[in-house]
Amino acid sequence: MDPRSEVLLRQAELFQGSLLIAGAPADGLLAELPQAQAWTWHAGDQAQLLGRFPGRCHHGVDAPQVPFDSAVLFLPKSRELAAYLLNALASRLAGRELYLVGEKRGGIEGAAKQLQAFGKPRKLDSARHCQLWQVTVDNAPVAQPLESLAERFELALPDGPLHVVSLPGVFSHGRLDKGTALLLDHLQNLPSGHVLDFGCGAGVLGATVKRRYPQSQVTLLDVDAFAVVASRLTLAANGLEGEVISGDGIDAAPQDLSVILSNPPFHTGVHTHYQAVEDLLAKSGKILRKGGEMRLVANSFLRYKPLIEAALGNCETRAEAQGFKIYRAIRG
Rank of each mutant, 00 (worst) to 15 (best):
V277P: 00
D248N: 14
G239E: 12
L132K: 10
H186R: 09
L296N: 04
P161M: 13
A140W: 12
A227W: 06
T219N: 03
G239Y: 04
G242Y: 13
A117N: 01
R212V: 04
A236N: 08
V66T: 15
R328P: 02
A310F: 05
C200E: 04
L155N: 05
V165T: 09
S70I: 09
V170I: 09
A26M: 06
F301G: 08
K305W: 01
W133D: 01
S172C: 09
E309M: 12
L312E: 05
V137E: 00
A150W: 03
Q116M: 05
V218Q: 09
A63H: 14
H173K: 03
G110M: 01
N139C: 12
V228C: 13
T40S: 15
D185G: 14
E241D: 15
E320I: 03
A225E: 01
D69R: 11
R105Y: 09
T268E: 11
A82W: 00
E6S: 05
P34I: 15
G203R: 01
E6F: 01
L89T: 04
Q322F: 06
H173F: 05
R122D: 15
L205Q: 01
S246H: 13
D27N: 10
F266Q: 03
A276K: 02
V229D: 10
T180A: 03
E151M: 10
S246A: 11
L30S: 05
V209H: 11
D177F: 00
A83I: 07
G201R: 14
Q217Y: 08
A321R: 13
S284A: 14
L281F: 02
D177V: 00
I260G: 02
A47W: 14
R328A: 03
N299L: 14
A71D: 07
S246V: 08
L100K: 02
I260M: 14
G291D: 12
Q114F: 11
